[in-house]
Nucleic acid binder design. Sequence first.
DNA 1: GGCAACATGTAACTTGTTACATGATTCC
DNA 2: GGAATCATGTAACAAGTTACATGTTGCC
Lengths: 179, 179
Amino acid sequence: MALSETILVCLTERPMSGYDLAKFFDTSVGFFWNASHPQIYRELKKLEQRGHVASHREIQTGKPNKIVYEITSDGRSALYDWSKEAVSEPVFKDDLLVRLQAIEHVDKAALRVQIIQRLASARQRLDQYHHIRDRRFSEGAVEAPNLGKMMGLELGIEYENGWINWCESVLKRIEHFEA
Amino acid sequence: MALSETILVCLTERPMSGYDLAKFFDTSVGFFWNASHPQIYRELKKLEQRGHVASHREIQTGKPNKIVYEITSDGRSALYDWSKEAVSEPVFKDDLLVRLQAIEHVDKAALRVQIIQRLASARQRLDQYHHIRDRRFSEGAVEAPNLGKMMGLELGIEYENGWINWCESVLKRIEHFEA
DNA sequence: GGCAACATGTAACTTGTTACATGATTCC
DNA sequence: GGAATCATGTAACAAGTTACATGTTGCC
């Protein structure tokens, strides 16, 4: 299972608390692996038991204290070993496409609204990705450790662009069809 | 949860056994919703308890008998009601991108092989989708009930094309980088 | 005889979600 | 006073995977 490895990957960037990780999942790695906070807290416990991460309490003023986790050298070698294992096929699930598959058996007005919403959220994410790209990978020379991140981001951009084009063409066609 | 609804959607096409559904998931709707056979059998039981599907035993010669499920009118209206509910964000998970994110901490030779494999499987699926398109949606005039299916398939084609382009560009760049 | 495809299932386990629970601080 | 953000968790449940289990028929 790649949740534990994804957490390790996040922690190679910098030490983080469960809360930090949850936000990081929402804004950064969430594009290719997502998790809710109960899952993250549960997984961090397991990782600590295995000795792949180590934690320390950080006293904060003006904010509640936090428990910060960092990857251990055991964690690093576990990550390296895992990286050699076979990748699994990506998981993709979308109940919008389920509806579309049975277009004759669903509420078409609702479907139209749902596609419009999907288009909006794709545009919003695309915007977000563009911002990240401009901020982090602005000029030609991207250093080695950022190369992978940049390529992941580029896939995200292509992916959202694909959705946008598709949604627009679908909307046109169903309008055509209804007329 | 959309597994039960996806099964209902499949059954609007034609009555099927658990085994048929499992194959159908692997070859058709699997692009946007996948499930293993234990999950399907378990879900069919629940659907029957709710009265959304009805089953009958079909005696076969030359093959083991099968239990064929069909959607009931209650199932149809449940599907219609569900279609009006809010769609959830699509789920996408890919441990290849997890590895890429931490390119400095993984086995790069292995990663290269993994990308090549991904490229190959994307090409294979694209081929499959092209075949389906040519077989089912060959000429301009696609009738209403197939419109949604065709648009879903088109997304699949765009999606696999995106992967192919991306894999190729990534391979080029990491070769460049290693040289 | 062995393998592949057909066909249906169970048991045990892991993963993922939802709702609940608590409590601090900051801003309006 | 109330809402939002920060911060960490638990409990119960739903969904998904893996391994096991069984038996048929057809083909080589």
